[in-house]
Every structure is written in structure tokens, then in C-alpha cells.
Design a protein around this nucleic acid. Structure first.
Lengths: 254, 254
DNA sequence: CGCTTCATTGATCAATCTCAACTCGCGTGG
DNA sequence: CCACGCGAGTTGAGATTGATCAATGAAGCG
């Protein structure tokens, strides 16, 4: 077992509200919100109320907790967050990283209780859609339903992949696969910088450790090894994959 | 990393068909099928065609493969199965065990491709529901939709728990939690024998190993330890938890 | 009867954790 | 401006968990 990395309990965000349009959302046109807006517009109905307010939370603040009962479904507009579970010994497991455009969890569409807590990694803005509105939209518009089904399938596929990674892959493989998965998701959102394999990368090594089931110490050693072998460049909150083939080889099946 | 436990590629089942009623299903009244039948009956519509035929597959045979394109959604009627992923080095990770009443995967309601293969552990019978029928039922009947949403949430919750177990728990904890989880699911289905904590248990040690990310050798050693400590009795395909408090302590957070 | 699968057990090995010391940058308060 | 503490990252030495290898036996089955 991993030892307890005891985290100070972060304060719950006050959820500062701001008004602003969806237009500036990094990932708007690639994700759920867009489809939702389109479906709503096309059907001619105002199924959804006015676009919900934007909430802003600072890094390391909690967006929602495990025991919360949410009347709304948060959708990340900007920034990175993590959904995670805390163990009683103080260690934690990150279930998934949330990027702009991501629903916190599709399960929240049907159930008010997330079974994990969600913490901002960078400064995060999100909108909280009303659950009942979303349900109505979903049942009355097949397009929206299909879109949500797609999100669901994708969420589940990634969870299953995580299970395989944690169950059957070495530390280097886990880290490499995590990074490649994140880069791919950023590419899908047009969130790369310069080259397609250079991205902003706000994760701390302890985030990587908590997502891969390793210790921060070991993560540090393996990242150094990756750097030493010319596979990646990682510094100043930015990441570049220098040797894609080589890095994929590390990530893959051994 | 775990080494390659290379499995012989099992033959695909011929899917022998049989006629028989849902009544004899072990778990009918506790699960999805029941709700579906009720919803269909109440609405007065024949949304679903006649109850689908029962397919029977022998132990160790494949129910569906990763690359299959399924026109239907299999629901287990009797027996145990496992959904799993195979790695290129021949090792495998079991994603979940399927018990009577379980849908193979709720994702199959929306997408014809399972992203894992499903293998019978015991002799298994299952019914293959037509996907389009199910969708129609789901969209026209809120009860059915709620039922499916519940399945989906439950499936995701279990996947998330598996991630936590594999990422942050010791070998003994993983095994104990797996067993407790299965016993609980069997209890929910009224599938216990004698005492509430005595059940039929067809899993081989390699199933436990593949589900917990361990080696069969290590599983054997830890199960022996559990027995030595008077926590469980496990033999002849039957399992009893002898010291529930003690076993829970092993399973829990340490 | 011989084959295969499954389980057990012991000896040894390797991956990863643990502990500890040190550096660096940053924000804060004196 | 400086001292300080804190979070983050690095590095090395040693401990531990679980994997690997190997030998053995029991059970099921053609």
C-alpha cells in the first residue's frame, strides 16, 4: 500500500459569480455545450433557461464534494480540475482530469450526488446547468440525447482504460499513457501550443502520482528518466513530446 | 509489471438457442428485466418484441468480443461471466464480473461495440434484447429510463471503486473488497446459500488475480492466509465469510 | 492412463515505496 | 530588505510488497 499523503483540507470555494458569454469558452465548439445550444436553438424551444452564470474557483479549491447534493450539473468552461476520492488514511486517487468542455460527471444528470469530490487544479470557471432542464432537453431532443450518450460512453471507456492501466501496467507505462491521453484530449479541443505535441500542462507531480497510483517520488524519478532519454520536455507548466514514437513505445505494451 | 499469463484463445460460442420463460431467472424480480417487463406491460404498448430467446454458452466460452458489432444487448439470465480486456503481452484485466440480471454493459444501449470481451465463467444463459426496441422503451417510458439511468450510475460507481482499489490498496485489501462486493451483489439478488454470508463461488484464483491486478500465485498465498486466520472458508466452489468483522477490517482502509 | 488445469509452497528477484536530506522559488510578515 | 516557512521537485539508500521461477500434488477428463 501507498502511504498516507495527507492533504490539508482545502476550503470550499465561495463560487464567485460572473456574467459572461459562452463564446469565449476555449472548447465551446468541440463539446457538449455547443451541441446543447444548437439542439435548443433548432427545436425552437427554450428548454433551457438562460445560459447559467459562470462560477470561478481558485486553484486547489473544491468545486463540489462527495456528500454534496447538487441541483445542477457543472460543466467546465476553462481551466483544469480533477475528480478524486479520498481514502481514510489520507491518500487519494484521482479518477479523472476534467478539461474545458467536460461535464463533471454524466451520472450527475440523473443523480444529485457525485461519488467523488472535484478540485480545481488551475483557476477554473464552470457553468452549472439545471438538471431538470437538461433532462427535458434530453428527452425531447434525440440529438441532445445522442450527445449525452456519447459523453457517457466516452467517460466509461476512459474509466475502463484506467482500470487496465492501474491493474496491469508498469509505472512508466501508466505515466506515459496518462500524458498521451491528456495531450490527445487537448488536441481534440484545439488547446495545443505551437506544435501539436506541445501543451500547457498545469499538473503537479503529485497529481500524476494520485492519478497513476504511484508516489510523487517515483513519478519524479521516471519523469527525469523520460527527460534524460529525450522523450519529453516538461518545465514551467508546459509539456512537449519530443520523441513521439519513442514515448508511445514506452506507453504501449512493453 | 505483471508477466504474461497467456491464455489459450477460447472458441467463440455457437450460441445455442433455447426457448424458456423469464420466470425461472434467478434474479428476475430484483433487476432490470423485471422493471422493463412491468413498464412495457403498464404502458399497454408492445414496445419490445416477444421476450428474446435464451442463449446458452459453456464455461470459458466467449459471449462477445471486443470488435463485435452487436445488434442486441445481452442480459445475463443465469451464471457468472466476466468482461475483460486482453493486453498484447497476453495478460488480461477483468473489468467486472457479471451476475444474473446484469446487462453486459449499459454502453451497449447506445453503441454496438463493447470495448471489452465477455467470457462465461460458469455455464451462462442470457437474453439478447434488441437495441432499438430498448431505446424506444427508454424514450417513451420515464420509468424505464430511470431504471436504465440507475444501472448506468451503478456501473460507473463500481468502475470508480475499482480504480481506487487498484490504485491505492494493498493486495489483501483488493481481494477482500472484491469478495465482499460480490457477496453483497449476490445478497441483493437473493443468491445466498444457508447463511447470508455463504454463497456459491465459481471463480478460479486466476479470475481473482485478473480482477485485482495480481498474480495467481500471490492470490493463492493471501487466500491461504485468510483461511489460516479464520476469516473465510473457500472450497468446492463455495465461499463463506466466517469472521465478517475481521474480514471487513482486512478489506477496509487499514 | 496420460493430459491439462488448478492450487500450493518455497526461494529468490525486481519494482516501487519509504525515509531522509537537500534545493529552489515564492509569498509573507517583520 | 531579509528571514522564514511552505510547497514542489530531486536524489540516494534501504525496506517491502508482490512478481517470478520452480517443483509438487490433486482433480477432472478424454
Amino acid at each position: 500500500m501507498t502511504t498516507a499523503y495527507v492533504y490539508a483540507r482545502p476550503q470550499v470555494s465561495t463560487g464567485v459569480r460572473q456574467r459572461s458569454g459562452c463564446a469565449q469558452c476555449h472548447a465551446h465548439e468541440f463539446t457538449f455545450c455547443h451541441a446543447l445550444a444548437k439542439a435548443t436553438a433548432m427545436s425552437g424551444l427554450r428548454m433551457l433557461g438562460p445560459t447559467p452564470d459562470v462560477h470561478t474557483v481558485a486553484p486547489r479549491r473544491i468545486i463540489c464534494r462527495e456528500q454534496d447534493v447538487l441541483a445542477h450539473v457543472p460543466v467546465i468552461c476553462s481551466g483544469w480540475a480533477a475528480s478524486a476520492v479520498m481514502l481514510s488514511d489520507g491518500s487519494r486517487q484521482i479518477l479523472s482530469f476534467l478539461l474545458p468542455g467536460d461535464l463533471v460527471s454524466t451520472a450527475l444528470l440523473f443523480e444529485p450526488k457525485p461519488n467523488c469530490f472535484v478540485e480545481a487544479i488551475t483557476k477554473v470557471t464552470y457553468r452549472a446547468f439545471n438538471r431538470t432542464d437538461l433532462k427535458v432537453a434530453m428527452f425531447s431532443d434525440p440529438d441532445t440525447a445522442a450527445q449525452l450518450a456519447h459523453l457517457w460512453i466516452d467517460e466509461k471507456r476512459r474509466a475502463d482504460e484506467t482500470i487496465v492501466d492501474l491493474g496491469r501496467r508498469s509505472a512508466s507505462e501508466r505515466i506515459a499513457r496518462l500524458i498521451l491521453g491528456l495531450v490527445e484530449r487537448l488536441q481534440n479541443r484545439n488547446m495545443t501550443m505551437g506544435g501539436a505535441f506541445e501543451v500547457e500542462f498545469p499538473l503537479r507531480q503529485h497529481h500524476i502520482a494520485d492519478a497513476t497510483g504511484l508516489t510523487p517520488v517515483h513519478v519524479s524519478k521516471l519523469l527525469s528518466e523520460f527527460r534524460r532519454n529525450g522523450l519529453i520536455r516538461l518545465s514551467e507548466r508546459s509539456l512537449a513530446i519530443l520523441d513521439l514514437a519513442g514515448f508511445r513505445a514506452v506507453a504501449d505494451v512493453r
